[in-house]
């Protein structure tokens, strides 16, 4: 109970401060709208449904990017974890690529993939790839050496050792990577929508900025953070259910 009440109280205080400061200082609503304005924008967007198509577009692209990026990250992490010699060549390259700011290549993607779903899926996939790859790769070294010895002494195949020992030992690491990736997938997707999209919450935010509809911008931003929290919770729940030990 306390775990729900405490943040709820903090949120109430925040809303109150927001409401009264907008009221007392008569802030221009095109700079900072009141919570009530944002509330009504949220009502219009989510209940009347003007934002639905954009929520779906963002979720769909983020989910696709998440799946593609995470599969690639886990796949390459496992592969390099198994073949250490290959890791010596490829790992430094991946780390160097990771240092590159993803936002910087976003305009390039318009050139390569055009305006639409592909470029934002690709951006989401890129940002999901790195945390899952790095975590999976370190997870592949987390197996206890006695367990590996036990399997080796019994003459177990590489595949069986991977499935029985290495992958379950890496599971915690992999899920930690997925946890980071799921939030980043929305970020990557929104960046893509800023630059090269015709739908999605990022597209909404950017085009509303031109119309000074700040209330609806806030509504879209809050919707995004709610989506981020919901996706994070989903991954955490899966983590607890699958890696139960």
């Amino acid at each position: 109970m306390r775990r729900i009440l405490a943040p709820l109280a903090a949120l109430t205080v925040l809303l109150a401060v927001w409401h009264y400061s907008v009221f007392f200082f008569s802030v221009d609503p095109t700079v900072l709208p009141s919570p009530a304005d944002v509330g009504s924008a949220l009502y219009t967007g989510l209940v009347r449904g003007t934002l639905h198509v954009h929520v779906l577009a963002t979720l769909k692209a983020a989910a696709m990017g998440f799946v593609v990026g995470c599969c690639a990250g886990v796949g390459l992490g496992v592969l390099l974890g198994e073949f250490r010699v290959g890791a010596r060549f490829i790992f430094p390259v991946v780390v160097a690529l990771q240092a590159m700011p993803v936002v910087a290549i976003a305009p390039l993607l318009i050139v390569w993939l055009g305006i639409g779903t592909e470029s934002k899926v690709f951006l989401a996939a890129i940002v999901c790839f790195f945390p899952t790859f790095v975590n999976t790769f370190s997870g592949m070294h987390a197996s206890k050496s006695e367990l590996l010895d036990l399997y080796k002494a019994a003459g177990a195949s590489r595949w069986l050792t991977l499935r029985d020992v290495k992958l379950p030992s890496a599971a915690h690491f992999i899920f930690t990577g997925l946890q980071i990736a799921v939030v980043l997938s929305l970020t990557g997707c929104v960046v893509g929508e800023f630059i090269a999209a015709t739908s999605g919450l990022g597209y909404v935010i950017k085009s509303l900025a031109g119309q000074l509809d700040v209330s609806m911008m806030f509504a879209a931003i809050f919707t995004l953070s709610a989506l981020g929290m919901a996706c994070g919770l989903l991954v955490r729940t899966l983590h607890r259910a699958i890696v139960f030990w």
Partner: peptide, 24 residues
């Protein structure tokens, strides 16, 4: 071994069966 090094994701029974499994 010095540590029991059981597989925490397998039941006690399946842990006992690990060498059998590993030997195919």
């Amino acid at each position: 071994f010095q540590q029991a090094t059981l597989l925490p994701w397998k039941t006690v029974l399946n842990n006992v069966l690990v060498p059998v499994r590993a030997m195919g």
